[in-house]
Amino acid sequence: MASAGAPTAPEKLRMTQSAHSRPGRPRENSVNSEEAATKFRVRRLAAWFGSQQVLHGLDLDISKQRVTAIIGPSGCGKSTFIRCLNRMHELVPSARVGGEVRLDDEDIYGPGVDPVLLRRRVGMVFQKPNPFPSMSIRDNVLAGLRLTHQLARAHANEINEKALRSAALWDEVKDRLDEPGAGLSGGQQQRLCIARALAVEPDVLLMDEPCSALDPIATARIEDLIHTLRERYTIVIVTHNMQQAARVSDRTAFLLTGELVEYAPTDRIFTAPSDKRTEDYITGKFG
């Protein structure tokens, strides 16, 4: 989907300073058109921990600037799946991946692709908020840029404010930016982690059960946030909460024991699933 003048996709992950198009500009596909551009093209994706195969050949396309929800019973491979999208899976010793994942038409497992650069484009928010305990709120937000030596001092405050505003946290913390990030409430910590992920300006945000440690009010805030972020980012969210999947996502994928059972627009999954197992799962008959 790369336009003619821009650097071709395969080069992007190999350059130190990637010049990929920033989110926020008008795109060729408006948000409400049915045919969105493909961000991830996943083919025959398989994953192992040692000799245990946990993903068995998944095929699916994830659309740009859409929210894609991944649902399924515990242990079915949801986390493993999204960790294959930013090559975090391979950080586990003995973990292995097979098949193909294309991001903007570039094979992210291809030779010469640097996973470190890939992860700057594909951000991630974890189930349990994990702010860096030794850093203040501000330093947490800027951590990604500092860790990757990309922070220009002159822009630090600006980037900090922008990221915290995008994560809907600015008003709550603007007077205590120098206090430790670990001193915030759980929901605030999670939004801090979202701000931290946004500050490096990724294209994609992977969220692994981002609300499972939060109360309903904090959850609602994160869901609102997902709604606004959706216009600029491609979001993949793993959730155990069916209502949440229904509320926030455009498409939903149902995984069962490492296989993709059904992948369809969210309203169809929740009103007229075509697979009996999907129906059983969302109506709470198992899982």
Binding site: V116, R119, T148
Partner: peptide
């Protein structure tokens, strides 16, 4: 490990993860 993963997910290399996240923690 969640702190190391948090750093890796931001695109940090192994060395900067160790020296700027793990050691300070």
């Amino acid at each position: 490990n969640s702190l190391r993963e948090g750093a890796y997910a931001l695109g940090a290399t192994r060395l900067s993860t160790i020296f700027r996240v793990v050691l300070p923690a």
